[in-house]
Design a protein around this nucleic acid. Structure first.
Lengths: 119, 119, 119, 119
DNA sequence: GTGGTCTAGACCACG
DNA sequence: GTGGTCTAGACCACG
């Protein structure tokens, strides 16, 4: 899986990586149990500091998306805990996005189509 | 329209206000041409610095949601420009939200229901 | 409140600070709403790096014990969320401590006395 | 006695095994003088490196919980030295657990009940 | 002035 | 070899 950083984005680098890995897991590009690159390898590949990647992995681990075993490095978790609900924060952000889309003249159906595309 | 700040949120205050005003315009709670409170009044009401509210209004103006003139203060724009498309940034955020929801075990339909609710 | 670091401990520095602050909040030494020292001040006082203190504050914030407002720095939260239950991890650790105490010839009552003392 | 490893835990594997054996001795599931499995057998059973089990046994021996001889392998000590006091480290950890429980809204009695349960 | 992020480099425990 | 921790120093957005 290729990870790309937008250096002009307001989103912190460790968060950009985190988001891309989460989307990769959801899309199936990253399979349950699959090895992630080592902290050092990913840092070298992207051209950033190991600490930044380390921060990403710790966040993903704490969120329950990955696990780190000391021998093999980081792996996608086999059984990701499913809360069954959307977080309040994501709900609020979704509401904001829908509002902005509506004011831009984007219809409901276009939004639902994107849901289908991304799901 | 009542504006509330979540002091525990990581979203900057000026952005929280901006988001609530945008959602207010979209929902119709704020009508086209409607007068917004003065910077000073809103700052006093929320209990924050005037500079922060000022930043919000400048952002909203630059985004084309409101217009300001020296005489009448800030007003919701009568004819907000409609690009007809969702911004790339919002698209990416939507994709992230959908991914997280999916991994949480939330179904497509639940997401589409929220679209209906928020639109 | 005075924070002391045991540099020979296996517990990471950021965790030692975190633990002491949590115990300070529980004992009432740190009151709800009370200002914590700034990241820089605490780092200087303890003689460690600001990053390490920053890590502590982020952890405490994520755990819901403190909040950071961008103007005034970090403060003890007024309304700490009460789960009403002991975490599974703490339960397991408690069980280990009780087992070790028992094998050392420490009685039940001595343990309960400590509960009273620390609560 | 069955030993289980939590691969998602931050507690090192050798420590998880050590803790379970100590709790097993305290609960009476492992009797004084009882033979422990060989390093190789236990490693095979759990599916980990022999080095890790070896580390556990060395620690338990050094702590005075077990004794090893070349002929019979490892056995639970008949007469574990009883200091009669709780170690300073365990005391500190107990204090931390009590503090966290208190802030979570858990009462003294619930904690004492756990002492009774685990003792 | 405040916390948040990031770098370059180092050392360590675990396995 | 792996992630986890820490340092010394820097820049930035927010308010």
């Amino acid at each position: 899986m290729i990870i790309g950083i937008d250096e002009y984005s307001d989103v912190p680098i460790y968060m950009q990586i985190r988001n891309q890995i989460v989307m990769g897991i959801s899309s199936g590009e990253l399979k349950p149990g699959e090895q992630l690159p080592t902290v050092r390898a990913l840092a070298l590949e992207i051209g950033i500091n190991t600490m930044t990647v380390s921060k990403t992995y710790q966040l993903l681990k704490q969120e329950g998306y990955i696990m780190t075993d000391r021998k093999n490095g980081a792996r996608v978790r086999e059984n990701i805990t499913q809360s069954g609900v959307i977080s309040e924060e994501n709900k609020l952000q979704l509401r904001r996005i829908v509002s902005e889309a509506r004011l831009s003249g984007v219809g409901k159906d276009a939004l639902k189509k994107l849901i289908d595309e991304f799901y």
